[in-house]
Measured scan of single mutants.
Amino acid sequence: TFEVERIVRKKIVHGNTSYLVKWKNYSSKDNTWETEDDIRTKYGDLVDDFEK
Rank of each mutant, 00 (worst) to 15 (best):
T1W: 13
T1M: 13
T1D: 12
T1L: 12
T1S: 13
T1C: 15
F2I: 12
F2Y: 13
F2G: 13
F2M: 15
E3S: 05
E3C: 10
E3F: 06
E3A: 06
V4K: 00
V4R: 00
V4C: 07
V4Y: 03
V4M: 08
E5F: 04
E5N: 01
E5K: 02
E5M: 04
R6Y: 15
R6P: 02
R6L: 10
R6Q: 13
R6W: 10
R6K: 15
I7A: 01
I7F: 02
I7Y: 00
I7K: 00
I7E: 01
V8T: 03
V8M: 09
V8N: 01
V8A: 02
V8Q: 04
R9Q: 10
R9N: 12
R9D: 14
R9Y: 08
R9L: 11
K10H: 03
K10P: 01
K10F: 06
K10T: 04
K10S: 06
K10V: 07
K10L: 05
K11R: 14
K11H: 05
K11W: 05
K11A: 09
K11T: 07
K11V: 07
K11M: 10
I12D: 05
I12Y: 07
I12F: 08
I12L: 08
I12G: 05
I12T: 11
I12Q: 07
V13I: 11
H14V: 05
H14C: 15
H14Y: 10
H14D: 15
H14I: 05
H14P: 02
G15T: 03
G15P: 01
N16G: 08
N16L: 15
N16Q: 15
N16R: 14
N16H: 12
T17N: 05
T17H: 04
T17G: 03
T17K: 06
S18A: 08
S18I: 15
S18Q: 14
S18M: 15
Y19N: 00
Y19M: 02
Y19D: 00
Y19Q: 00
L20I: 01
L20N: 02
L20F: 09
L20E: 05
L20K: 02
V21C: 03
V21M: 02
V21G: 00
V21K: 01
V21N: 00
K22Y: 04
K22D: 01
K22E: 06
K22S: 05
K22W: 04
W23T: 01
W23I: 01
W23E: 00
W23H: 02
K24R: 11
K24W: 06
K24C: 07
K24V: 08
K24D: 02
K24T: 06
K24E: 03
K24A: 07
N25C: 09
N25F: 10
N25E: 09
N25P: 05
N25S: 09
Y26Q: 14
Y26I: 13
Y26S: 13
Y26M: 15
Y26V: 13
S27C: 09
S27D: 14
S27Q: 11
S27M: 09
S27N: 08
S27T: 12
S28V: 09
S28D: 14
S28M: 12
K29R: 10
K29F: 10
K29A: 13
K29G: 08
D30Q: 14
D30I: 09
D30H: 15
D30K: 13
D30P: 07
D30C: 15
D30W: 15
N31C: 15
N31I: 08
N31T: 09
N31H: 09
N31W: 13
N31A: 10
T32N: 02
T32E: 01
T32C: 03
W33R: 00
W33D: 00
W33T: 00
W33F: 02
W33M: 01
E34C: 14
E34Q: 09
E34F: 15
T35P: 12
T35R: 13
T35I: 07
T35N: 11
T35G: 06
E36I: 06
E36G: 08
E36S: 08
D37M: 12
D37N: 12
D37I: 10
D37P: 08
D38Y: 15
D38W: 15
I39T: 03
I39L: 15
I39P: 09
I39G: 00
I39E: 01
R40P: 02
R40S: 04
R40H: 03
R40F: 04
T41F: 11
T41A: 13
T41V: 14
T41R: 13
K42C: 13
K42H: 09
K42N: 12
K42R: 12
K42S: 08
K42V: 09
K42D: 11
Y43M: 04
Y43E: 03
Y43R: 05
G44H: 09
G44Q: 13
G44V: 06
G44K: 15
G44P: 15
G44E: 08
D45G: 11
D45Q: 13
D45S: 12
L46A: 06
L46S: 05
L46Q: 04
L46M: 12
V47Y: 06
V47P: 03
V47H: 14
V47T: 03
V47W: 08
D48I: 09
D48E: 11
D48V: 06
D48K: 09
D48W: 06
D49S: 11
D49Y: 11
D49W: 10
D49V: 10
F50H: 03
F50Q: 03
F50Y: 10
F50I: 02
F50D: 01
E51T: 05
E51S: 01
E51F: 05
E51P: 03
E51L: 06
E51I: 05
E51V: 04
K52A: 11
K52H: 09
K52F: 08
K52L: 11
K52G: 07
